[in-house]
């Protein structure tokens, strides 16, 4: 039986400011999904028919560098969205999304979102606003990082060395590639 997403929607900031009747309507396009640690919400390179809103738990964003090497790029928690890039450009999943702790997420199909957007739904507008803001912030952060790297190559190098020593240790000790955050 389909689990009612409404109680979960009420716990998430993205749905704040909407009336009960609006939420009732929106609850028809969201599905409650549960993931156990290590389970993938989505895999890099796959078609991306949906996006997620995290209600509880932690999700790792992982770059599949090669079949044996995986680079964790970020961890995403409650209230955040996942899958914004393919939601906007219709492309494939740029990264694997993997539960790092038990996860409850709300999933929305891209076509349903497009339908809401084309019907001038304030919710779809709010999601778009949210997404554009998030994308811009990520670009700005990356530009800042680039700026730091360019301004201080000595520090960059020592940071990269430290990171690789840690990676080497982790490979040696656990046989697993776990990269440290490069910051």
């Amino acid at each position: 039986m389909r689990e009612d997403p409404l109680p979960y929607m009420k716990q998430v900031a993205l749905f704040e400011g909407f009336s009960d009747s609006e939420l009732q309507l929106l609850s028809q396009v969201f599905r409650v999904r549960r993931f156990t640690p290590g389970e993938a919400l989505a895999r890099e390179g796959d078609a991306a028919p949906s996006f997620f809103v995290v209600v509880a738990g932690i999700v790792s964003v992982v770059k599949e560098v090669s079949p044996r090497v995986r680079q964790r790029l970020a961890t995403i928690g409650r209230n955040r969205m996942l899958g914004q890039i393919p939601l906007i450009d219709g492309g494939r999943r740029p990264n694997t999304l993997e539960a790092a702790a038990p996860v409850i997420a709300l999933e929305c199909i891209r076509d349903d979102f497009e339908r809401l957007f084309n019907a001038n739904s304030p919710f779809a507008y709010k999601v778009l606003d949210f997404v554009v803001t998030d994308l811009s912030q990520r670009l700005r952060q990356t530009n800042r990082l680039l700026e730091e790297l360019l301004a201080n190559p000595g520090r960059t190098l020592s940071m990269v060395y430290d990171a690789f020593i840690e990676v080497g240790k982790s490979v040696h000790e656990t046989g697993e590639f776990k990269a440290a955050g490069l910051r």
């Binding site: 914004q84 906007i88 450009d89 492309g91 778009l128 994308l135 990356t142």
Partner: peptide
């Protein structure tokens, strides 16, 4: 208009 601009941002992040 935002919807039109957003893919450019996505392209840069990709």
């Amino acid at each position: 208009m935002l919807r039109s601009i957003a893919p450019t941002l996505c392209g840069r992040l990709r």
